[in-house]
Each structure stands twice: as structure tokens, then as C-alpha cells.
């Protein structure tokens, strides 16, 4: 899986306000499909390989593969 695009959010709705700044990514899976998720740990850039660490309330959290 690789990063298709990403952003770091600084201004968020109340539900996410405590978490800013946080990184949102769209990831391309092996089958070519895409999903929006969040990044844990080190920030990622386009084309970085990532792995899915967990699913929280249906939202995938990804981490950069070293």
C-alpha cells in the first residue's frame, strides 16, 4: 500500500479539535482501490509505502513502512 495524497490538518471540527495537528491520507491498496485514513507516528509523503496498523470505528490507521 502506498500514499496517494496527504495533508496535515490544523483546523478541525470539535470532534477532532484535541488531535490537531493530525495527518489524513488517501492510500492506494494493492488491488488499486483507495481509502481515506489517518497516520500514526512519522509523517508520510506521496508514494511512501505504508501498512495498516488498526481500524478504529471503521477508520484505518496507517504507519510508514521503513
Amino acid at each position: 500500500m502506498t500514499v496517494y495524497t496527504e495533508t496535515v490538518v490544523h483546523l478541525a471540527p470539535e470532534a477532532f479539535a484535541k488531535e490537531v495537528p493530525y495527518q489524513v491520507v488517501i492510500v492506494t491498496r494493492e488491488d488499486g482501490s483507495r481509502v481515506t485514513g489517518r497516520v500514526i507516528g512519522e509523517r508520510v509523503v506521496i508514494d511512501d509505502p505504508v501498512e495498516q496498523m488498526e481500524l478504529r470505528d471503521g477508520v484505518p490507521f496507517f504507519r510508514k513502512v521503513k
Binding site: T5, T36, R38, V59
Partner: peptide, 24 residues
């Protein structure tokens, strides 16, 4: 709201991701 917004996307962040990709 069942996907991208639940993940913490805002409208600025959706267009930010478009901008990143356009830059790339």
C-alpha cells in the same frame, strides 16, 4: 460522512489533498 469525514477530513483538507497531488 461514512468514510473520509469520519477519518477527520475537513473541506480544506480535501482540497489540500487535491493541491498536494496537483503539485506532485
Amino acid at each position: 460522512c461514512s468514510g473520509e469525514i469520519k477519518a477527520g477530513s475537513t473541506f480544506p483538507s480535501l482540497f489540500a489533498m487535491i493541491a498536494r497531488r496537483h503539485m506532485y
